[in-house]
């Protein structure tokens, strides 16, 4: 059985990609509260819910919402993010990346 990628590790990985300014939680604020509380307990420097990793009957589903920097083409940044997530996930994983801000 394949181990699903770790959300915190994925977030750190994405933040290291040129053109990625920020990652925003894909879940609504109410869901973030519990995760934030857990992050406080573990003193984790990166919030665990920034990149959503879900196991479904069809396989792994990864979702990320990012801000791209304006000094690089946002669409290329988006593709780099997708490729990075695909490389970290098992084959056939479903990846959704949305650019929600260009700053």
């Amino acid at each position: 059985m394949t181990i699903p990628p770790d959300s915190s590790a994925l977030a750190a990985q994405l933040l290291a990609i040129p053109g990625v300014a920020e990652i925003f939680p894909p879940s609504p604020p109410i869901v973030q509260l519990s995760t934030a509380a857990a992050g406080l307990l573990t003193r984790s420097p990166i919030r665990a819910d920034l990149v959503e990793v879900k196991q479904t009957s069809g396989g792994t589903r990864i979702t990320a919402k990012i801000a791209a920097t304006a000094d690089q083409p946002a669409r290329e940044t988006g593709r780099r993010v997708v490729d990075s997530l695909l490389a970290a996930a098992e084959p056939g994983a479903e990846v959704t990346v949305q650019i929600v801000r260009v700053s």
Binding site: G78, V82, E94, V95, V97, Q98, I99, V100, V102
Partner: peptide, 21 residues
């Protein structure tokens, strides 16, 4: 939508981000 060759991928930019840009 933004282009990507992989059919398992959904890549996009929000309309709000584009208007803000």
């Amino acid at each position: 939508p933004l282009r990507h060759d992989n059919p398992e991928v959904t890549l996009s930019i929000t309309e709000g981000a584009v208007r803000a840009l």
